[in-house]
């Protein structure tokens, strides 16, 4: 049991680092700016990034399994477009929701099957998926389509009041539920553990008799589903559908997952880390907007720098572990 207590922190270290980073950036903002350290600013972090949290949760599955999904941003755009177009055509809201989720999951399924069955790199397949989804948006409409459906608008503007006068939207609740479900699936189910196994060593997982095929395809279905759900949340947030929505959002999702401490090679990482990663990204944006004189491009530069730091730390950890292993064997 001593082994357990001394080793667990090492595995959680990247996540802890992210959480510490979040606390530090947020703390810095609180000291520097009045009104930063309010409950509502925190709540806004969640409100403004709910869709990204959902995307990052899905992306965590894919990256843990050793893959990557470049299509998520485009699937978000496609989802907003289908939602807007569907509502404009007078579809009932539940039908729209089902259609969007089905389209996203199916896209994920197709990409997963192509990746697995035909042994084509995930990078290329999901890149094609990215092009396809965005192209389909424009096939529906080249212009932005606004959402006028009253039910939808009601949900979008509805707020839940928390103690202390802080308000959140339903988006936040959905995003947090997604995180909880992801947490359960990854850590408490065979599927989830197989995701880790496949990411750790796919060949071994196969020889261990684990359902690698189902798992590898499954993560893309999950990511597709999360992208579609994220797209619905984004529709609620923007109240429009547009082919140029969420351009480059896949990079934000990947950045959040990496900053959240998940190893890009797969097999090591946590959903909560990804959540923390999204919050860090969100805080930086908030900080820069509070600052006022800093231009928005600084966000990109800072995110790039953060990525760099976390990658370098991960690299150091892997090296350290290898050295340990070499001596042990």
């Amino acid at each position: 049991m001593t082994a357990l207590t001394t080793r667990l922190p090492a595995r959680f270290l990247p996540v802890l680092a992210t959480v510490v980073l979040f606390v530090l950036t947020f703390g810095a903002g609180s000291i520097r700016y009045d009104g930063f350290a309010s409950g509502q600013v925190i709540a806004n972090l969640f409100i403004d990034n709910a869709f990204l949290i959902v995307l990052a949760a899905g992306m965590t599955f894919v990256i843990l399994s050793g893959g990557i999904d470049l299509s998520v941003g485009s699937v978000v755009a496609l989802s907003t477009m289908v939602t807007a177009a569907g509502l404009r055509a007078g579809w009932p809201v539940p039908l729209v929701i089902i259609a969007v989720l089905l389209i996203g999951s199916t896209l994920g399924l197709v990409m997963g099957v192509v990746i697995h069955k035909f042994d084509i790199q995930p990078f290329i397949v999901t890149l094609a998926g990215m092009f396809l989804a965005r192209g389909l948006c424009f096939l529906i409409s080249v212009e932005s389509v606004s959402i006028k459906d009253t039910t939808f608008r009601d949900v979008a503007t509805a707020v839940i009041e928390l103690p202390g006068g802080v308000t959140i939207t339903y988006n936040v609740v959905i995003a947090l539920v997604v995180v909880l479900v992801a947490l359960y699936v990854l850590h408490r189910t065979r599927f989830g553990r197989t995701v880790y196994a496949v990411g750790g060593n796919e060949q071994s997982a196969l020889l261990m008799g684990l359902p690698t095929a189902r798992t590898k395809v499954g993560v893309y279905v999950i990511s597709g589903f999360c992208s579609a759900l994220g797209g619905l949340l984004f529709s609620l947030y923007m109240l429009s559908g547009y082919g140029l929505h969420a351009v480059g959002m896949e990079l934000d999702a990947i950045a959040a997952v990496v900053i959240g401490g998940t190893l890009l090679a797969g097999g090591l990482g946590y959903v909560l880390g990804s959540l923390a990663g999204v919050l860090v990204l969100g805080t930086i944006q908030t900080l820069i907007s509070f600052q006022g004189t800093l231009s928005s491009w600084w966000t990109k530069i800072v995110i790039g720098a953060l990525l760099l730091v976390f990658i370098a730390v991960q690299r150091g950890m892997i090296r350290g572990r290898r050295r340990q292993g070499a001596i042990a064997s």
Binding site: A205, L210, G267, L268
Partner: peptide
């Protein structure tokens, strides 16, 4: 070659798939 998943626990490596 040891065909297990080094990133999982010993227990998972023994029982995953029939846990």
């Amino acid at each position: 070659e040891v065909n297990l998943c080094a990133n999982l626990t010993v227990a998972e490596n023994i029982l995953l798939g029939r846990e």
